[in-house]
Amino acid sequence: MKPEQPSTDIDRRAFLVGGMGLAVASFLPLSTKAAPADMQAAVKELFGDRPLQEGGVTITIPPIAENGYSVPLTIDVDSPMTPEDYVKKIAVFSPRNPIPNLVQFTLGPRTGLARVSTRIRLAGTQKILVVAEMSDGTLKSAAAETMVTVAACIIG
């Protein structure tokens, strides 16, 4: 009996190559990642050309996040939170996620304490930027780097 191995072999190869192509295509994200330039544009869109002063903002985020789908984030801003001097807005930006805006908070004198915690998704190791807008219009900022072992958004 003659083995029909060669022809099935070719079919199998074609099938495997095609399948691999499909598999690779399905892993590609729908849109490209936000580049650091997009992050700067997002900061500018929200706060204009006002200068960022480093300091006055404390970011608490794990240095290594095993799971990029849920990374705990706490932000503290130095402010007495009185009607004369308070934090108006806190915005969190990413240089690597598909959309540079991650989350924004609106505070006021009645908030009492300029501290907020939430959980965010991170699409890979990156340095997030937090900008706090004070009631007098000045902007304080801080950045914090997190190493992400399993990134959100990349895998389904």
């Binding site: 789908y69 849920s70 990374v71 990413s94 996620n97 598909p98 959309i99 805006n101 991650l102 989350v103 924004q104 908070f105 609106t106 505070l107 006021g108 009645r110 908030t111 907020v116 939430t118 959980r119 965010i120 998704r121 991170l122 959100a152």
Partner: peptide
């Protein structure tokens, strides 16, 4: 009276 507000984007965890 609003004392705290948040705007969420897709990067907020489930």
């Amino acid at each position: 009276e609003a004392v705290f507000e948040a705007d969420f984007f897709p990067s907020v965890a489930a």
